[in-house]
């Protein structure tokens, strides 16, 4: 009896006994939790290995940027590429090109919430003239994809220019983790349209954004993500930084012909827009955004994601260092 409790104190044997039981209980609870742990969530799947987007940048082409003033998209785009040595400097004979457009909303082209169909047509045409074997266009819109591609005029534009439009569907998504990132981990990525591609071009409008301050070239890659991606709005600047780390494009086309100054990113009224008559083409997505923010009457310091992306090595926020060609 005195081996159990002596003078009100627990015995060594009983203490060890209880310790072992408590340890087993904790371990059991942990094992049970691990058994039920679902890293994917209710609608996800974990098929195959994690994928990464290949690096489509062209270091040999160097860091280049052209800024062309004008109100006709086809003209300003042609002049911008002419200043950069032609589309042939970037797209070679036999290249397979993917245009990542912004078709986020089922909204008419005149509201400038999405990539303009005239610009997409002109870009596809330039790619084919440069010798591209195939030009593919895709996006994973916020709204219903069929309505988005149709009402934005993008579907008709792609068809008329001989491009291939890829609608997002579950089977086209794979999982990705951004190397060095902490937000985009094991996340669904619209990957299949990128397979077999040799050049990647982003085409995006210039828009104010109530959460991030602006939606331009880097934010455009948000449209490659799937899943409940709106959670990234909780840490939007770091999320955009990671998007810039996730995608190394051949070049970006930032359309500031009309900029959405207020009520972005959806807008809804022509009075939200301002004719800023500027087309930006750049091999450096960070530099493009650094210049693009001036169209929204903002400075780089107003948009923390630009500096964050620059610090992450995605490009330079000092666009002047690229010696941009202004026309």
């Amino acid at each position: 009896m005195n081996t159990v409790i002596k003078h009100g104190k627990i015995s060594r044997r009983r203490f060890i006994n209880r310790l072992i039981k408590a340890g087993l209980s904790i371990a059991g609870a942990g094992a049970l939790g691990y058994f039920f742990y679902d890293p994917v969530g209710p609608s996800g799947s974990l098929e195959g290995e994690l994928v990464s987007i290949p690096d489509f940048s062209m270091p040999r082409a160097g860091k280049k940027m052209a800024v062309v003033r004008g109100s006709v998209r086809k003209e300003t785009l042609n002049r911008a590429f002419k200043a950069l040595g032609g589309m042939e400097s970037f797209v070679k004979k036999g290249d397979r090109v993917l245009l990542k457009v912004n078709a986020a909303f089922a909204s008419p082209p005149m509201l400038s919430a999405t990539s303009h169909p005239e610009l997409i047509t002109a870009c596809i045409d330039l790619c084919y003239r440069a010798g591209a074997e195939m030009v593919r266009v895709t996006d994973n819109p916020i709204n219903d994809p069929a309505a988005c591609f149709r009402l934005t005029g993008i579907e008709a534009a792609v068809k008329s220019a001989g491009g291939e439009l890829v609608f997002p569907r579950d089977s086209l998504f794979r999982r990705t983790t951004v190397k060095g990132g902490s937000l985009i981990t094991n996340w669904p990525l619209l990957f299949s349209p990128l397979e077999g591609i040799t050049k990647l071009i982003g085409i995006s409008p210039v828009k104010g954004h109530q959460r991030s301050g602006a939606s331009m070239a880097m934010k455009n890659w948000y449209g490659l993500l799937g899943g409940q991606r709106n959670i990234f709005h909780q840490d939007i600047h770091n999320a955009i930084k990671e998007l810039s780390m996730m995608v190394r494009p051949t070049l970006v086309i930032l359309d500031g012909t009309t900029s959405m100054m207020t009520n972005g990113p959806t807008g809804g009224s022509l009075s939200d827009l301002k004719n800023t008559d500027t087309m930006i083409v750049s091999t450096d997505q960070v530099a493009a955004d650094a210049f693009g923010c001036s169209l929204l009457d903002k400075e780089v310091r107003d948009l923390p994601f630009i500096s964050k992306a620059a610090e992450a090595g995605s490009g330079t926020a000092e666009y002047e260092s690229l010696k941009p060609i202004f026309i």
């Binding site: 916020i142 709204n143 709106n230 990113p265």
Partner: peptide, 11 residues
Amino acid sequence: LSDKINGKADG
């Protein structure tokens, strides 16, 4: 809501 109006939903 953000499936429809994205970044404007917070407001």
